[in-house]
Amino acid sequence: MNPSMDTPSDTDSLLAVLEKDEWFSSCAIELKRALIRDAKMHDYAAGEALYREGEFARHALFCVIEGAVRLSSSLHDGTPSLLVYLEPCHWFGDISLIDGRPYIRDAIADVDTRILCVPMQPFTQWLDHNPRHWRDIARLSINKLRVAYQVIGEPGALHHRLARRLWLMAQGFGSRTQTPSLQLNVSQEHLAQMMGTTRQSINAALARLEGLGLVVQGYRTIELRDLKSLLDHANRLDVEGPADRS
């Protein structure tokens, strides 16, 4: 399916939707309006690529409006590696905006998805004339770097690490810490790719968390019962023996 392209017709309504993201809501109104001024809405079918690794960046930023996007790549043996699973209203694409280099991951619509796409040239020209707002773009990237540091070398058995990852996903990887989502629409296969393990191992770890009353599993959904208890479990490493890294 070729993406449809529509200019957002109701600026105030779109701003209200985008305010759900904590980075966007913290930006000055001038930057918010610059982001949507030349932006287009693109519709993608499930499995369709927004862009591929190595492609020249035509857009400065993207924001998930409806649906979900997988940022992924393939390992040397061809095994898919899922970096992150993005739901509304998460912004991404900032690395290529900052360094001007090609995309470093594939961005794939996981379900039928609507994306707000900010074109590169007019937005970078606006930033160059309003350089103080480059700091806001840097904040967007730094927020993601902070999350990355939290998951690199995570300690504990798989069920501990999975509990932390689910907690981070509930908060949109830092984009909605004030209004976390207690229902995640993600498959066991995607969790396995994200955690670098097998679906069978994820199934066992989820069963462990479900047995503890922390989650309830559905079809491609995971309901989180209590975020504080989930995080407490992720940090409760002293009750285990040697960490199971499977």
Rank of each mutant, 00 (worst) to 15 (best):
residue 134 W to S: 13
residue 58 R to G: 15
residue 72 S to L: 08
residue 171 Q to N: 14
residue 230 L to P: 03
residue 243 A to H: 09
residue 204 A to N: 12
residue 75 L to Q: 15
residue 237 L to G: 12
residue 172 G to F: 00
residue 180 P to G: 02
residue 62 F to V: 01
residue 25 S to H: 10
residue 237 L to I: 07
residue 238 D to Y: 13
residue 107 A to N: 07
residue 95 I to W: 08
residue 151 V to F: 10
residue 194 M to H: 09
residue 107 A to D: 08
residue 184 L to P: 04
residue 215 V to I: 14
residue 193 Q to T: 04
residue 104 I to V: 14
residue 240 E to D: 14
residue 146 R to C: 03
residue 167 W to R: 05
residue 57 A to V: 04
residue 171 Q to A: 09
residue 29 I to Y: 01
residue 38 D to M: 05
residue 153 G to L: 10
residue 202 I to Y: 04
residue 241 G to M: 07
residue 173 F to Y: 07
residue 203 N to R: 13
residue 236 R to E: 12
residue 142 I to S: 10
residue 154 E to F: 12
residue 67 G to C: 06
residue 34 A to Q: 03
residue 231 L to A: 03
residue 25 S to Q: 14
residue 175 S to F: 05
residue 169 M to N: 05
residue 59 H to N: 11
residue 86 L to E: 03
residue 241 G to S: 12
residue 51 Y to P: 02
residue 133 H to D: 11
residue 241 G to F: 07
residue 83 L to I: 10
residue 11 T to Y: 08
residue 19 E to D: 15
residue 63 C to D: 05
residue 22 E to W: 04
residue 152 I to K: 12
residue 204 A to H: 13
residue 158 L to M: 10
residue 105 R to A: 09
residue 198 T to F: 05
residue 163 A to C: 08
residue 130 N to Q: 14
residue 65 I to K: 09
residue 78 G to Q: 13
residue 88 P to F: 00
residue 241 G to R: 14
residue 131 P to T: 12
residue 147 V to W: 02
residue 32 K to P: 02
residue 57 A to F: 06
residue 180 P to W: 06
residue 3 P to K: 11
residue 171 Q to V: 08
residue 182 L to Q: 10
residue 221 T to E: 09
residue 197 T to G: 07
residue 32 K to Q: 11
